[in-house]
């Protein structure tokens, strides 16, 4: 098990060195956000703040608060809806296979790898036609639709592992298609729901391209607002860093609390799962 050629201390040194690289941005992020603006000069960028100054947080919060709420209004319904749709189609594609269902599945999967630029122009035209352009509702629709492939994939891979015998015995007991779904598949896939929900939550929260092209000013999710903090005024680095931290907080909390499920989702994204 142990690489004899590399001694343990050396391994730790390497790992700690890499850890420093990984933590460096977070260190700067945090200390800069805690400094008053006067203290943010080139020469003391790495120094700890002389006084803890929370004003950049209150300023960043007052600027980002509406957008943070927008993000929540967007992410929660979109996550739930795409998980529902994914569970439904994953169920059919794993347990009710029919001729051509594999091809159909592959066709659906392709949707998760396309560069979204390639559907953006028609999408915007469409949203305008139906009056959903520049609404959070429109953005929810977009994320639900483009979340279908990954959610379907995750649920399908999850359901494949549920033995057919369980379904058959339920059918013998008179359960129909819906009954099996409700009484067997859903209860057995709670952790699947968690994985998909966390994955979608993180992805939709962090998404930028749709957000920046489909919504404007007061409808914008937080990531666009964060990007705009570096807008036409002086870049107030402390406010921007505080804003970055605020915008990242929800996904970080989810990661810290439910990291295991997050990594599961990560792996599921590689098609084979």
């Amino acid at each position: 098990m142990v690489l004899r050629s590399i001694s343990k201390p050396l391994i730790y040194v390497l790992l700690i060195a890499v850890s420093i690289f990984f933590l460096m941005p977070i260190y700067v992020l945090i200390i800069t956000s805690l400094k008053p603006l006067e203290e943010i000069t080139l020469s003391n960028m790495w120094k700890l703040p002389s006084v803890l100054d929370m004003s950049s947080y209150s300023e960043a919060f007052s600027k980002l608060a509406p957008n943070l709420m927008n993000s929540f209004y967007l992410v929660i319904p979109a996550t739930i809806l795409s998980a529902m749709l994914g569970a439904m189609s994953g169920y059919v594609l794993s347990k009710w296979k029919f001729k051509g269902s594999e091809i159909l599945f592959t066709l659906m999967l392709f949707g998760m790898f396309i560069p979204y630029q390639s559907i953006l122009i028609p999408l915007i035209q469409f949203l305008r036609e139906v009056g959903l352009y520049n609404t959070i509702l429109g953005l929810i629709l977009v994320h639900v639709v483009y979340g279908i492939p990954i959610a379907t994939l995750m649920f399908r891979n999850f359901y494949v592992n549920i033995p057919d015998e369980m379904i058959e015995s339920a059918q013998i007991d008179g359960a129909n298609f819906l009954g099996v779904f409700r009484h067997i598949m859903i209860p057995l896939s709670i952790s699947g729901f968690v994985v998909v929900a966390i994955w979608q939550f993180t992805n939709i929260w962090n998404e930028f391209l749709f957000a920046v092209t489909i919504t404007t000013s007061d409808q914008q999710p937080v990531m666009v607002a964060l990007q705009n903090l570096s807008g036409s005024q002086i870049v107030q680095w402390n406010v921007q860093m505080a804003g970055a931290l605020l915008a990242a907080l929800p996904t970080l909390i989810v990661y810290i609390l439910l990291g295991k499920y997050f990594v599961k989702g990560l792996l599921a994204g590689s098609v084979k799962g």
């Binding site: 404007t216 000013s217 007061d218 990007q227 705009n228 903090l229 570096s230 807008g231 036409s232």
Partner: peptide, 11 residues
């Protein structure tokens, strides 16, 4: 006030 920030007006 429906001002849009960023990019000296390009946004």
């Amino acid at each position: 006030n429906a001002a849009v920030a960023g990019g000296a007006g390009t946004n």
